[in-house]
Design a protein around this nucleic acid. Structure first.
Ligand SMILES: [Mn+2]
Ligand SMILES: [Mn+2]
Ligand SMILES: [Mn+2]
Ligand SMILES: [Mn+2]
Lengths: 218, 218
DNA sequence: TGAATAAATTAGACTAGACTAAAATATGGA
DNA sequence: TCCATATTTTAGTCTAGTCTAATTTATTCA
């Protein structure tokens, strides 16, 4: 049984390894709003439990066991987010903090029943994949909207930064998971691009925004 | 913001004061499976926060603030139990431990939306009243089935001990919240009674069981 | 190459929440 | 009344998880 803090550290490692190839002590600390020295202690503890390999001054790698635990945690987090949005009517910008708490209620029966109840969803409200009970994830080939070119037709698959501000901006522009877009033009000067949703008028997106939209070809 | 342990202590005090008129240190310890000395420390802390009055060697009384917090906790506990049974298909004997964890996710929006989603239920799966968002409880006049007499017609309103064994025994006999019964006969020798459900054959209940069934006249 | 800097670890301190053992207090029965 | 017992509190210890400050190690660049 892992404590809440152990779980949060494990998840931070998992997320950082997905984003880049290394999980640095300082980045874990920044993500958890704690200090590097605290992270060092916790990494030692997680290594003792066989959840990760920690070579002091080199990097952190998850073991199969550690990855399994992390995936279960991600599964619970994303199932709860889905529940909050689909069933309780929360906005996708309002669910993160609550899910951050609910994810720590570790009960396999609860998790599996919730999964059934929601219809075994493959993706959460932000478009992130939900691992199944065995930790398997549905893979997709997506790319950032910011690397697309004029004439490309794409569908928004996920938002890679779920800060409230970005999500609300997307709401304001009518952009959501599944929205189809055509790229009209890319402006080299500032990296902004003009896009046109399938049903709607064209508008412009800054590079800050397009960089955080994961899209798939349509 | 209260910690999980503070919340559990407060709830134990609240429950003990409801059952009897005093909440003794040793009883709190027993309920929380902890030691009297630990309880003393926590009572001091809760008193410092203005949630209860603790006169060493005398008793514990909740302040209005403390009662309010306890009621919110009870509200969350019972709403989650209701969710688990009504929506996720859990048995009424399976929900307590999970609800004991979920109750500590303190988010008013979550609680209120869950309440709405469940249709603002007045009672949980064990027949216990669910406080509303202001902490108000629907009062009923119930009595133990064990004090009823031959010919009494009653409806089961609540089960006052939610141990797995009792709940499964009731399941086996087809007794649930709302079941209507006629008391046929009471046997003074062992306190057992013969009862007949409205739709079904008569059978006998031991005093151990009838003592834990709260009923209302029908 | 070798400082300067960045990153990570170690050392030591603190708090919360538990425990055991000992002391203090209250209570019930002879 | 007064002692035996039950209950509660106090004193002191322990672990988990955090912190700051100091030290160690790795990296970068002049
Ligand atoms: Mn979390
Ligand atoms: Mn998400
Ligand atoms: Mn609890
Ligand atoms: Mn209940």
């Amino acid at each position: 049984m892992l404590t809440r803090s152990e779980e949060d550290h494990l998840k931070a490692v998992y997320a950082l390894l997905l984003e880049g190839e290394s999980a640095l002590t300082k980045d874990i600390a920044q993500r958890l709003r704690t200090k590097a020295s605290s992270v060092t202690d916790m990494l030692k503890k997680l290594a003792d439990k066989g959840l990760l390999k920690h070579e002091p001054y080199y990097g952190v790698k998850l073991t199969a066991k550690g990855r399994g635990h992390a995936l279960q945690l991600v599964r619970r987090h994303r199932l709860w987010e889905t529940f909050l949005v689909q069933r309780l009517g929360f906005g996708w910008d309002e669910v993160h903090d609550v899910a951050e708490q609910l994810e720590h209620v570790a009960d396999d029966k609860l998790t599996d029943r919730l999964d059934d109840y929601l219809g075994k969803p493959g993706f959460d409200p932000h478009g992130d994949p939900i691992p199944d009970r065995k930790g398997r994830i549905r893979e997709r080939k997506t790319q950032r909207l910011s690397v697309c070119q004029a004439q490309d037709c794409v569908r928004i698959a996920a938002v890679s930064e779920t800060t409230d501000g970005l999500l609300r901006l997307l709401d304001a522009k009518g952009l959501r998971i599944g929205t189809q877009l055509v790229v009209l033009e890319v402006h080299p000067f500032d990296g902004s691009m003009d896009v046109k949703p399938k049903n709607g008028a064209a508008f412009s997106l800054s590079k800050d925004v397009s960089h955080h939209l994961q899209v798939e070809p349509v």
